[in-house]
């Protein structure tokens, strides 16, 4: 277990915890870049998906944007952004925003479409105006799926932010890419572990947030089949048929 020991030693080295290249700073960088990208992408994608779902027009676009997004390699998006905007934080940010948009559009659209037509009718029958139907009926019911889209995007973004180390940006991917360059495999492995843990933390916390976002009236009184403990597969864009 010589290699495992080297990795442990790498983590125990105090120098790796200090300064701009240290673990805490790189982690914060990674989270700040990912968080900012997801927020900006949400500000663009959610109004589009919700509007398409609410007005019922352009559904084909909303569904297919995810399929198209999946077909375009994120690595290619990142490199194209570098060609357009140079190296560093800006191309990384723009590429991450572009990658985060499609799943949020699709999921918020599906969430809005899955609101039972009878429920909508009933709300109108109770005298609600269009805007009240949107804010007080459709959005709360669609919220879990909207959250599913945000979660899918956020996990993608944290993963792709790792690749951004290749285009001279920081974040935790730095340890992997530098470990590669220096053939310092313990550092590379340590970087991989930190990135994996960060992704899982993001996934688990957003899965929790999604559960909290489900309106009390829609929560099953007793847990239905515990099919996906991680919650990942609650993203309908990932299930075919």
């Amino acid at each position: 277990m010589n290699f495992a020991n080297q990795v442990v030693q790498w983590f125990l080295n105090g120098a790796h915890w200090q300064g701009d290249g240290g673990i805490p700073h790189r982690t914060l960088e990674h989270l700040a870049m990912s968080g900012a990208s997801v927020l900006v992408a949400a500000a663009i994608a959610l109004p589009i998906g919700i509007a398409i779902g609410h007005f019922g027009r352009g559904g084909i676009l909303a569904i297919n944007i995810s399929n198209i997004g999946r077909a375009v390699p994120s690595f290619a998006v990142l490199v194209i952004a570098v060609e357009l905007f140079g190296i560093g934080a800006l191309p990384a940010f723009i590429a991450l925003v572009a990658l985060a948009i499609p799943p949020m559009v699709t999921n918020s659209y599906i969430g809005m479409r899955e609101v039972d037509a009878d429920v909508r009718e009933a709300a109108r029958g109770m005298g609600m105006r269009d805007r009240a139907v949107l804010w007080r009926v459709e959005l709360p019911i669609a919220l879990p799926l909207i959250m599913a889209g945000i979660r899918t995007s956020a996990v993608n973004v944290v993963a792709t932010a790792t690749l951004a180390a290749l285009v001279a940006w920081g974040g935790l991917g730095r340890f992997i890419v530098d470990g590669f360059g220096l053939q310092d495999y313990p550092m590379m492995f340590a970087g991989a572990i930190m990135v994996a843990i960060l992704s899982l933390i993001v996934e688990f916390s957003l899965a929790g947030a999604q559960r909290l976002a489900t309106p009390a009236g829609l929560r099953p009184s007793k847990p239905v089949q515990k099919e996906e403990p991680l919650g990942i597969a609650r993203d309908p864009a990932m299930v075919a048929a």
Partner: peptide, 16 residues
Amino acid sequence: GILYTIPSLALFSALV
């Protein structure tokens, strides 16, 4: 699900 969540670059480089 855990395998799916781990970023590709991290998984590949952890295997190297």
